[in-house]
Design a binder for these strands. Sequence first.
DNA 1: CGCAGGATTGATATTACTCAACCGTGGTGG
DNA 2: CCACCACGGTTGAGTAATATCAATCCTGCG
Lengths: 188, 188
Amino acid sequence: MAAAPVRHYAKRATIFAAGEQGGALPKLLSGAVILYALLDDGRRQVLDLAGPGDLLHFETDGVVDHYAEALTPCEVARFEAGDLLATGDGAAFLMEQMRDRLALERRHLTMLSRKGAAERLADFVRLAADCLGQRDGRFELPLTRQQIADFTGLTLETVSRTFAQWEREAVLTRLAGRTYQMSEALAA
Amino acid sequence: MAAAPVRHYAKRATIFAAGEQGGALPKLLSGAVILYALLDDGRRQVLDLAGPGDLLHFETDGVVDHYAEALTPCEVARFEAGDLLATGDGAAFLMEQMRDRLALERRHLTMLSRKGAAERLADFVRLAADCLGQRDGRFELPLTRQQIADFTGLTLETVSRTFAQWEREAVLTRLAGRTYQMSEALAA
DNA sequence: CGCAGGATTGATATTACTCAACCGTGGTGG
DNA sequence: CCACCACGGTTGAGTAATATCAATCCTGCG
């Protein structure tokens, strides 16, 4: 892949905002990013989480329609879409990225359609663990309760209560800070 | 675009099923299609609606992970992904298709995160009207209540009740069969 | 004309939302 | 170094909404 300028972002920094011109495609090299949209009614809808290797949007010509914020310190490189599409390899890479993203959105979608709060959050935990990287069911969750609520379509109180119950039942254990260990039951 | 064999499907026919090999990409030439996944718990999650011009999946090498069923009689042409990626125009077309699909999934996602049933269904009606084609707020809805429920994450009873209330309030009018007219209020 | 699948409607139970108070912790300034 | 403050998180009580269960009604089609 062609050399590309690398930018660093601090935790909580905005990587790009809705309304900005697309152009070069931002690829996340390290760190974790949250993608969200601001709704007309003021609500914040989390669209996706991104981990190392993910492209953060696919707008070559148009205007980006969502926000990207660093959950952890991040490195981002920008690639010209033209360069990518020019080579067979680049085009294939781009297509694979979009296909993966689409699959992830569908997983998110399926999660949102689950009726119960517990089921929804279980799906979310698995999804987040996959996105943000896990080892043996141990993973970091650099999201606030509100962000989790905006991801799952629940309220922060319901998120809090469900997590509390899981800790009581030892389905989920907080090891330290924001690092959690999920049990076999959840990993399924 | 290269010539491609065209297949016809009757209403309710399965165009492809999850588990089939991807390969040539199916493009819908006419008609309407519903894309859905079967969940482990037996539930059916509607992922998307597709109208003329849409590609029904993007699996070139792997295995398709969802089902496509004809809502109306359909014509489908299959295009070799290799041929598309080989030309700049083809690759650009493919990318635009995927970007559009992604945007649609995100709209769906946003809809699912709305709390109230009425808001969700209002979003759905607008989305369906856009996908399936509308003129002056008049559109066809070739979906059963159950399919609408599977799309919106509600129960078919709630869908039925909400539609009934809208008809009482003249927010939505059934002109004939499955043709509806939405009022200004909904179109917003 | 009769049948079958979808749709409607009603009564009730369950669930998550809302409102509100309180707790803990990390960070900052005296 | 400690005290305080602010923000995120927790917990509780009551309410509103939708899911559930169940009976009945259409409607298109054979």
